[in-house]
Simulated scan of single mutants.
Amino acid sequence: MKRSSAVRRAVLAAVAVALVTTGCTDRAAGAPKTPKAPVSAPAPTSGGPSSAATPDAKPSSSPSAPASTPAPTPTPSASASASGKVLMGDGDENEQVRELQARLRQLHHFDRAPTGFYGSITARAVSAFQKKRGLPETGAVDGTTWDRLRAATKKPTADELKPSTTNELDAPDARCMTGRVLCISKESRTLAWMIDGRVVSSMDVRFGSENTPTREGTFAVGWKARDWTSTIYHTPMPYAMFFSGGQAVHYSADFAARGYGGASHGCVNVRDRAKIAALFDQVKVGDKVVVHW
Rank of each mutant, 00 (worst) to 15 (best):
P136A: 05
L169S: 03
F280P: 04
A78N: 09
K284E: 13
P49I: 09
G139F: 00
D90C: 06
T25Q: 12
E216G: 09
S264C: 08
A14C: 14
P74L: 13
R215T: 07
F207N: 01
A240T: 03
F129I: 03
R148S: 11
A158K: 15
S244R: 02
P114S: 04
P163K: 06
S230N: 04
G91L: 11
S60G: 14
T21Q: 10
V39N: 05
C176E: 11
K85Q: 14
T34H: 11
K131W: 00
G47M: 15
S40C: 02
G222A: 00
S79Q: 14
H292V: 05
V86I: 10
R124C: 00
M237V: 11
P35N: 00
A29Q: 07
R98A: 08
M237W: 06
R103C: 12
K284L: 09
W193E: 05
Q282L: 15
V268R: 01
I276P: 03
D92K: 12
S5D: 10
A113M: 06
R206N: 14
K131S: 13
I276R: 05
L12A: 12
F117P: 00
D26G: 12
R271T: 03
F280E: 00
G208D: 09
T178M: 08
K85M: 09
A174C: 12
L107I: 14
D142K: 12
A257C: 01
A278G: 15
R189E: 11
Q101I: 06
R198L: 07
M194T: 04
D204P: 06
L100Y: 01
P66Y: 03
V39R: 03
Q101C: 08
A29G: 11
R226C: 00
A128E: 14
S127H: 05
R98L: 05
D92H: 14
T73H: 06
A80I: 09
T153A: 11
D281H: 05
S64A: 15
A125N: 07
G47A: 15
V249F: 01
G30A: 10
A6G: 07
V17L: 15
P213I: 05
Q101S: 03
G286M: 01
T214R: 01
K284C: 06
G47W: 12
A151T: 12
A256M: 04
M241K: 04
R271V: 04
T144Q: 10
G84L: 06
L149N: 10
T214W: 02
L279N: 05
T115A: 05
F243N: 02
S81V: 07
D170K: 10
D196A: 10
L100S: 03
G47Q: 15
A29K: 07
V268C: 07
A140E: 07
K288I: 02
P32L: 03
K85R: 14
D272R: 01
K36L: 13
P76T: 14
E216S: 13
R271P: 10
S68W: 08
D287Y: 06
S244L: 06
A41V: 02
T218E: 02
V181K: 04
I184S: 01
A13D: 01
